[in-house]
């Protein structure tokens, strides 16, 4: 039976991890390579690296990071942030990434999805969708945001999700703009609505504050994977603890 995936997310800028300062036992907790190796040893199912600076220099740094990580870490690596062209995608994949995540570039130029899928295979094209609640509780709707959530596009998130899959997206990384950073749980309605609307796997992101939140996103939200940053970076929970918790509640996980 396919297991549900637990994915720590490393926010990187200029080749350095932004969070993660609680790793006092690592020689250099700001080094994404060390942190990645640590999570690999701890049993993470995949890793996501997001370049939150998204500058050209940051992209070069990211290539170096991915090269080093792929020598030590033998689980899938997804890299996103600031990728604009097929050439950007190729560089990251050749550095050793298995998947790339695109958001803003896909909104402006949806053809990059089909071109990327054709060149490298759908399996490595992850579409990152930042969704923001638009109106009332009775009839929830979500809008796609770009530029790291700073700008709403007016595009309906569910329609956009379906369209990206039709164009060749192999997986969706769905972040709730409203829940992100709140630690009050994932947006379960959003997660479920998108999961049920598409045939590809959905990674839920944004809002994890405790292990019950992970469980809810996977079971109520029907997500295939959960992504979290601070609960792991600040060592509130280990990957082991997360998996033990889920397994005890009947969620299939890799151990």
């Amino acid at each position: 039976m396919l297991t549900k995936r637990i994915i720590p997310c490393l926010d990187v800028t200029q080749g350095r991890v932004v969070k993660g300062l609680s790793f006092t036992h690592l020689r250099d907790a700001g080094d994404p390579v060390e942190l990645a190796a640590f999570y690999y040893q701890e049993g993470a199912d995949e890793l996501v690296f997001l370049d939150i600076g998204a500058t050209p220099e940051g992209r070069d740094n990211m290539v170096d990071v991915v090269e080093c990580v792929s020598e030590r870490v033998f689980i899938p690596l997804t890299v996103g942030g600031g990728l604009r062209s097929i050439n950007d995608i190729r560089r990251i994949l050749e550095a050793g990434a298995d998947k790339i995540a695109i958001n803003t570039a896909a909104v402006f130029n949806p053809e990059i999805i089909s071109q990327g899928a054709q060149k490298f295979g759908s399996q490595c094209i992850v579409i990152a969708i930042d969704a923001k609640r638009a109106n009332g509780i009775d009839n929830p709707k979500w809008e796609v945001c770009i530029y790291g959530g700073r700008k709403s596009t007016g595009i309906d998130a569910i329609e956009w999700a379906k369209r990206t899959v039709a164009l060749g997206a192999g997986e969706l990384l769905l972040t709730s703009w409203d829940a992100d950073g709140q630690r009050t749980g994932y947006d379960l309605e959003l997660t479920r609505a998108i999961s049920e609307a598409v045939s590809v796997p959905v990674i839920a992101s944004g809002g994890a504050g405790n292990l019950e939140h992970l469980y809810e996103a996977l079971v109520i939200g029907k997500a295939d994977a959960v992504l979290a940053a601070s609960i792991f970076h600040y060592r509130i929970y280990s990957i082991h603890q997360a998996k033990d918790y889920l397994a005890e509640r009947g969620v299939p996980v890799r151990r």
Binding site: R5, S122, V200, P201
Partner: peptide, 8 residues
Amino acid sequence: KIPHMGWN
């Protein structure tokens, strides 16, 4: 769900 993606 297609692709079959993840640990099995």
